[in-house]
Design a protein around this nucleic acid. Structure first.
Lengths: 200, 200
DNA sequence: TTTTATTGATTGATGGATCAATCAAAAATA
DNA sequence: TATTTTTGATTGATCCATCAATCAATAAAA
């Protein structure tokens, strides 16, 4: 069995498995065995490569975050105008894999974990900052800096809120509806505060 | 010791203790011992009155929800116009005790739990529906029904989102700022879609 | 043969649940 | 009023399952 160079393969498999199982069960209280089984290896091997469950979980948030960042970068590169960039950011947030119930359940679990794990909180704060910063960056080209901050704050909140409501699975919040709602919010704000701006 | 009629007293003490401990630790993975200790009784007594940890947790969500409902009813009674009622709903969501870090941590933990516990999800769905319904009820007097639905959806999402961002404790989301942001969202929407409405 | 990969077996700790045993107030009885 | 009986309240001790973590052993490269 043991081909050399398995480490990166196993690490990835385990992180993916963790994400899968966590999303499926909706909690971080999954066992190392659950994760290992999903990855097709023994629990002992998971410990061998990650040292502890906590470390594996940390790597898992990191991975979740990286995925989102990569998607965002790609989307931003394809967008031309500032307004298009804003829509791109919104769209990425609600695109298929991010908005899948299991993915949201995993995010939720990590948000809860952030209350305890300093490292997890750090990662989530990074996500929040990045989203905010991306929004502000485009908004500043469309309105005054002060408004840009406010609109970014509201947009970010709405995105996160739509996630939560989706997690409950109550109201049929489709991805498209979520995108429309968030995009409308931006448009509304820009039209309300910007008319006199084109003079500058 | 045993004065008769302790049951309601103990139940309340245990539920309050559960809320306290859960909010403090930010997770439902608190032990019955932790809760019982906080309530000043033995773990065995908690089992005696609630049968299981799960049941105690369910009663705890119920209590959290009841608190919010009572506050909302009070606020709505004090509000006159539909627009005032909307602001009242928003204000209640961010009022001191609801917006306290421990309370938010508890909410978050329960949202995560809803992925597993059918009963917990039921309660949270009720909360979501009630919020939505309260919003729509007032909005319909200020704009067309179709818009009312949409605005309610966005408002609810923004409220939930601001909660999450507060939970992270990153950006300094004060209660006042949150109220302003949400209220602005409502105002903006009403002004944007309503001008031609006064003709009807 | 040395190194890397891998696992089954084992363990220490934790925590939910159960239960037999107290304790004291209240009610019934004398 | 004094005495006995009953019952709710309460707990310490304990059982049992789960789980993270460790380790010694095995198997396949190199």
């Amino acid at each position: 069995m043991p081909k050399v160079g398995m480490e990166p393969v196993r690490r990835k498999a385990l992180v993916d498995a963790a994400l899968h199982v966590i999303g499926d069960q909706g909690t971080l209280s999954v066992t190392m065995s659950d994760i290992a089984r999903q990855a097709g290896v023994s629990a002992a091997l998971a410990h061998h490569y990650f040292g502890s469950k906590e470390q594996l979980l940390v790597e898992t948030v990191r991975s979740l975050l990286k995925q989102l960042r990569d998607d965002t970068v790609t989307a931003l590169n394809a967008a031309g105008t500032p307004r298009e960039r804003l829509s791109a950011i919104v769209r990425v947030s609600f695109q298929a894999d991010q908005f899948a119930p299991e993915t949201i359940a995993a995010w939720l679990a990590f948000y809860s974990e952030a209350q305890r794990s300093e490292e997890t909180r750090r990662f989530l704060v990074i996500y929040a900052r990045r989203l905010h910063s991306n929004l502000v960056s485009s908004l500043k080209q469309l309105c005054v800096a002060d408004d840009a901050q406010r609109i970014a704050e509201g947009t970010a909140a709405m995105i996160d809120g739509l996630y939560i409501r989706r997690a409950l699975g109550s109201s049929p919040v489709t991805a498209d509806a979520s995108i429309a709602l968030t995009d409308d919010y931006i448009t509304l704000n820009l039209h309300a505060r910007q008319p006199q701006e084109h003079a500058a």
